[in-house]
Amino acid sequence: MNVFRILGDLSHLLAILILLAKMWRSKSCAGISGKSQVLFALVFSTRYLDLFFVFISLYNLVMKVIYLLCSYITIYMIYGKLRKTYDRENDTFRLEFLLIPVIGLSFLENYDFIPTELLWTFSIYLEAVAILPQLFMISNTGEAETITTHYLFFLGLYRALYLANWIWRYHTEKFYDQIAIISGVVQTIFYCDFFYLYITKVLKGKKLSLP
């Protein structure tokens, strides 16, 4: 466990909590893509099946349970408690365009052709693209609330810190996981455009709006 990994995990947790706090305090999920949140719940559910088979560490177990719980609470808020505020007209990304290629790729490129491993691989590939419905929604409406941009920033920062973690682990442990690394690079690239807007607009006190 290195500092990049810990900061990455905390950044991920902070992103999830920012989103929940936004919905809780404003009693609204406007501007949030329910589809992206469903994909993230699917990512956690398929990746953390190992909770039933192995014990890695208390840290690992607690974080997985928190991520899973928060993810399902988020979905309950969007599709249950706050459904009247859900902006479904702008959440129009077609999920099959992501799910079909991701399922196909996890059958083609994996470490082992066993169910748990295929589900893990599926979760890694899906996580790389799960934010696309949210980014698509922002490009549909042309703007995002500042709090939503903080959520996206920490979610992107988490993956960028994981890249540093992998570089660190390669140099110190000779450990590398090419499926996670390649997917992580792809995932981080999706955030680059957003990072640019976040730094040049949101951090200068302006609202994120697209030209």
């Binding site: 190992d50 470490y111 082992d112 066993i114």
Partner: peptide, 10 residues
């Protein structure tokens, strides 16, 4: 053989 227990990252 490799299995899911090898994945220690979140």
């Amino acid at each position: 053989e490799p299995d899911i227990s090898d994945h220690d990252e979140l």
